[in-house]
Structure formats: C-alpha cells, structure tokens
Write a protein that binds this DNA or RNA. Structure first.
Lengths: 97, 97
DNA sequence: ATCGTTAATCGTCGATATACGATAAAATAA
DNA sequence: TTATTTTATCGTATATCGACGATTAACGAT
C-alpha cells in the first residue's frame, strides 16, 4: 500500500524543470560538486543550492561535505523505490477505458 | 531525450496527495463519475473538481460529459509514457555512488 | 592571522497553489 | 415550466514556491 503523502513529496521534488535537469546531470556524471551543477544551468548559485536542498530533503539525492565543497549524488535506492511506488499506485490499469 | 518541461508538468500533477488518491481510485475502479470521487475524500466538491481539472490538463485523465454527470478515467497511454520518461531520465544509474 | 574559494542560509518580492462558499450552467424529473 | 441533481467556475483568503542579492560559514592556501 503506497503512502500518498510521501509519494507526493517525492513527486513535488520532481515537479520543477531545474530539479529534473539536476537529476539528469547527476545520473549522467555520477557524483558532482555543487559548482559543477551551477555551471550547467542559467540560475544563480543561491537558487541551485535551494533546489539541491529540496532534492536532498525528498531523499532523491545525497550530499556530503568534501572540504570547502559539497558533493552530490543520486540516491539510487530512493529513486528505484519511487519508480516502484508509481507502478504500484496505478496497478495493472486493465479496468480502465 | 526527455522534455524536462512537460515531464515537470506531469510530476506537478502528481505532487498532491489528493490527486494521487484520485488516480488510485480511478485505477482501481476504472471509470468514475465526479460525485463518486468526491465521496471518497474529505474535500469539498469545488476542490475535488479543481484537482480533476489539473489532472485533466496534465493529460493524466480524461473526462467526458455523460448527461448531467462527468465521467473520468485514467489516460493509460499518458501514464505509461510518464513512467518511461522517468526511467529514461535516470538512465542506468550505474555510475552513481 | 588574513585572504580567496565554495556553498548554505537569510530576507524579500512576485507568482502560483490550495481550499472553500457561492454561484452558474446543463441536463433530467416532476 | 419549475424544481432537482450534478458539476464547473468565480471570487477570495491564506500558504507555499521560485528567484535572487547579500550575507554567513567553513575550509584551504599564503
């Protein structure tokens, strides 16, 4: 049984193009330092940092301090769980029009 | 190549527990009249109607008028497409931590 | 200790989302 | 026609989001 509240939180984290772009970059490159991510997008450092925080709070990425830098990475397990929950939510979709 | 803008729109539609609940109900029951959906949730008719509109605008459900009623249904193709786009966005996730 | 680099947080402003009562519209029933 | 049922929309109030400049904090180098 899917917890709709937590699934909604995860989907909300996915609901902004900038955050999807961050996730795509991380999926392609593996680990990334914050500045690298900032360089890939037309947004200020403050805004990107805010988006990273949202993704981290939703559990979709991890972030750990590495000297003066912050290294971010996709949380593979959470992403897989998210995919399964969406599948489960919709079920078989057989009795649909 | 995934269109992040449109994927974000779809995810935004999934980003509210009430809308997820509506989708789950539709997935379980197949077609539903608006009033049936209202009866399953602790929200006013106006609010549910608004959520249905958001889901419809995002293409996740279809809605057609049936006499004085409105009959809603999951848009199976769109939902499948959504699932594939999310998969594609994350890719293999092999080079992640 | 001071300086430069990197990233997080604060404060703010406009835009958007959410919820609901009230009302309108459209079809059916009496 | 008139009343009833069903749903969409309007108007509104509060809350949250999204963006950014400015500031703070933490680390490394000189």
């Amino acid at each position: 049984m899917v917890n709709l509240e937590s699934l909604a939180v995860a989907c909300k984290a996915l609901s902004h193009p900038a955050r999807l772009a961050i996730l795509r970059t991380l999926a392609q490159r593996g680990a990334c330092v914050c500045g690298e991510i900032v360089d890939t997008m037309p947004l200020s450092q403050a805004t990107v940092s805010q988006h990273l925080k949202i993704l981290k709070n939703a559990g979709l990425i991890t972030g750990e301090i590495d000297g003066p830098r912050s290294c971010y990475c996709i949380n593979v397990e959470q992403v897989r769980t998210l995919g399964k929950e969406i599948e489960q939510l919709f079920g078989s979709l057989d009795n649909c029009c």
